[in-house]
């Protein structure tokens, strides 16, 4: 196993996530794509951790932190989506421009 195979796979996964974030209209789907990107980051972290043989296991520890923060992000994100849906009966983020000038 070489380290690069994991890194390239993660890069591919990350790019697919970017595509999803840019293309999807439904907010839930955008959040799903963000999860793909975070998973790619986790694969990178763990792969580097294994590659560097880190005594402090920083790679895995931070992968765990990313998972925790991602869980928080999904919770808040979906709460916001639900709130928006309640107000506008739509979860399409391209119909939202409340932050406009």
């Amino acid at each position: 196993m070489i380290v690069n195979q994991f890194l390239v796979l993660a890069a591919l996964l990350f790019s697919i996530g970017i595509y999803g974030v840019l293309v999807r209209r439904n907010a839930v789907l955008v959040l799903l794509s963000v999860e793909l990107m975070l998973t790619a980051v986790n694969i990178n972290l763990v792969a580097f951790g294994a590659f560097l043989q880190d005594e402090l296991l920083a790679g895995q520890v931070f992968a765990l932190f990313v998972i925790a923060v991602a869980a928080a992000e999904v919770g808040i994100g979906l709460a916001i989506v639900v709130l928006i849906f309640r107000n506008r009966s739509s979860a399409n983020i391209d119909e939202l421009n409340l932050l406009k000038w």
């Binding site: 070489i2 380290v3 690069n4 890194l7 390239v8 890069a11 591919l12 792969a47 294994a50």
Partner: peptide, 17 residues
């Protein structure tokens, strides 16, 4: 993807885990 993959390939090449 090309940017990242190119950068990692250049940097790590065939390094084994």
């Amino acid at each position: 993807f090309v940017t990242i993959a190119w950068a990692t390939t250049v940097s790590f090449g065939d390094a084994l885990i």
